[in-house]
Computed example of a mutant assay.
Amino acid sequence: MASATELPFGTRLIGETEKALNAILRRLLAGSGVGEPQWVTLNVAIAAGGALDEGALAGRLAQVRKVTGEDARARLRELEEHGLLTVLADGGPVVPTAAGLDFRRRVAARVEELTARLWGDRPEAELAAAGALLNTVLARANKELAGP
Rank of each mutant, 00 (worst) to 15 (best):
A56L: 10
A48K: 01
R75P: 03
D53N: 15
R75T: 10
R75V: 05
W39V: 05
L29T: 02
K19G: 11
G33F: 01
A62S: 12
A74G: 08
S32I: 01
A56N: 08
R73K: 06
T68D: 12
L29Q: 08
K19A: 15
I24Y: 09
L21A: 13
G50P: 02
A58Y: 04
D53R: 11
A74F: 02
V67Y: 01
V44C: 05
K66T: 12
K19C: 12
T41Y: 01
V40W: 09
T41C: 12
R75E: 15
E70V: 06
R65Q: 15
R60W: 11
A23F: 08
L21D: 11
R73I: 06
A30C: 02
D71Y: 01
V44P: 11
A72K: 03
G55M: 09
V64Y: 10
A58W: 05
L61G: 10
A58M: 07
P37F: 00
N22R: 13
R26I: 00
G59V: 12
V64N: 04
G59N: 11
T41H: 00
G69V: 09
S32M: 02
T68K: 04
E36T: 11
W39S: 06
A58P: 02
R73E: 10
E36W: 01
L25V: 08
G55H: 11
T41F: 00
D71A: 15
G31S: 07
L52C: 03
L52M: 13
R65K: 15
L25T: 13
Q63T: 08
R73A: 12
V67N: 05
